[in-house]
Every structure is written in C-alpha cells, then in structure tokens.
C-alpha cells in the first residue's frame, strides 16, 4: 500500500520533472487571480459608486444635469452587470480570446486577467453597492455639512465603512475568483488545473495529480482566508 503510494508519487510528481507543471501552474494561477482581483475591485468600486449615486441622488421629477449625465452611465452599468452575470465565465473567456483577440498574438495570461477581472467586477460592484447603501444616511449628511464634496465624502467616509460591511462577502468573491481561474484551460493557459490534467494524461493516473492539485487550491484558499480575517479584525477597531 505505502509502496504503491510512493511509486505513484514518484511517477506523477518527480519523474520527468512533472512537479514543474505545478510550480509553474501555481505562479500563473496566482498571477491571474491577483491582477484580476485588482481589476475587479477597481471596476466594482466605480460601477457601485455610479449605481448607488444614481439611486440615492436621482430626482425623478426634474430633468436636472445630474439626471442627464447619470442616467446613461447607470444604464451602461446595469447592462454590464446583466450580461456578465448572465453568461458563463468560461464563455466570456473564450469570446475574449477566440473572438475579440482572434488572429492577434496576445499573452494568454493577459487575456485571463482581463476576462476574470471584468467578470469579477460585476459581482464586486453589487457587493459594494449593498455595502454603500447600508451606511447610515446621517454619515453622508454629516460629511457634507462639514463642507466635504461628494467625492471626498465617498472616499473618506462612505467607502471605508462600506468595505467593512461587506468584507465577508468580498472574501467569498476573491476565493471564488481564485478557483474560477481553473477554467483557463479553455484557452490553453497552463495554469494549475491544466497542469494536473496534463500529468494525468501522461501517466494515466488522474487520481493522484487531481488530488494533489485539490490540496494546493485548498492551501492557497486557506492562506487567502487568513489574510482576509486579519484585515477584518483590523477594520473592526472602531467597534469597541
């Protein structure tokens, strides 16, 4: 039994330097996930601010300047969220790679970052919007009454509190995104999962390589979880 385990390990990991599929895969997976999270958070913040500003400030009885500028922006954001949430991530990824960048020599890592960032942004924006809407209206009024403008109020007063409100949900989204990168095999990007399936196809022993890759994902998620809960504790300082 133990002998079998050792020989499987040797065959799947050591032989022909197969472990390099994992080490290279981890780096690519982390690279894609990291930059996609940044892109997703940026997009999500912008979209959520537009959406909640529209919901909070709109004066439905008047054709004011705000309405004229904000209505189309809000509409675009809603279309973006609907399309991205309404279609599978793997389809979006393939459309970006095989349709939008077809015939162009383009870095697959970049394509994956773009696809997952745009995908995540839609979810992050709705998470952030729920956080913004949950901040007490009085916070907004107090900030404005001191003379701070809308943008300053958002940056210094509303967003920090909104992020604190939604950090558990954001953590969820980051974890999902990290694992979602495993579909990048669809554009032949050699990330972690594809590495495992290549090994399996070479050794005809999928059990070992897939088990191994599952453990690696679990470890990565646990590390991510650790940092998220640390951040959560830090943001809770004002709660006594």
């Amino acid at each position: 039994m133990f002998q079998k385990f050792l020989s499987d390990f040797h065959q799947n990991i050591i032989e022909e330097s197969r472990w390099e599929y994992f080490t290279r895969g981890i780096l690519i997976t982390l690279e894609v996930a990291f930059f996609a999270v940044i892109l997703g958070v940026l997009l999500g913040c912008i979209v959520s601010i537009i959406r909640s500003s529209y919901d909070l400030n709109i004066n439905r009885h008047k054709m004011s300047v705000i309405n004229v500028i904000m209505w189309p922006l809000n509409f675009i954001c809603k279309v973006y969220i609907t399309i991205i949430r309404g279609t599978p991530a793997i389809v979006q990824l393939m459309i970006i790679y095989y349709v939008i960048f077809s015939g162009v020599d383009i870095n697959k890592v970049f394509v994956a970052i773009l696809a997952f960032g745009i995908n995540s942004g839609a979810y992050v924006s709705e998470i952030m919007r729920s956080g913004i809407m949950a901040v007490d209206k009085g916070q907004f009024e107090a900030s404005r009454s001191l003379g701070m403008n809308y943008v300053q109020t958002m940056i210094y007063i509303i967003l920090p509190q909104a992020v604190k409100n939604v950090l558990p949900a954001l953590g969820n989204e980051f974890i999902t995104l990290l694992k979602e990168t495993s579909i990048s095999g669809a554009i032949a990007l050699n990330e972690l999962t594809r590495g495992a399936s290549i090994i399996g196809s070479q050794t005809y022993n999928y059990l070992f390589s897939l088990l191994f890759v599952a453990i690696i994902y679990l470890a990565l998620v646990m590390i991510l979880q650790y940092f998220i809960s640390k951040l959560e504790r830090r943001l809770r300082v004002g709660d006594r």
Binding site: G138, A142, Q161, K164, V237
Partner: peptide, 14 residues
Amino acid sequence: KMGMVFQQFNLFPH
C-alpha cells in the same frame, strides 16, 4: 462656514 449638529450625532465610527 455653517456647522451642523445632528440628533443622531453622526460621528464617523471608523
């Protein structure tokens, strides 16, 4: 130039 004080204080909790 117009300070305002609210019923619900509205201090910034963070």
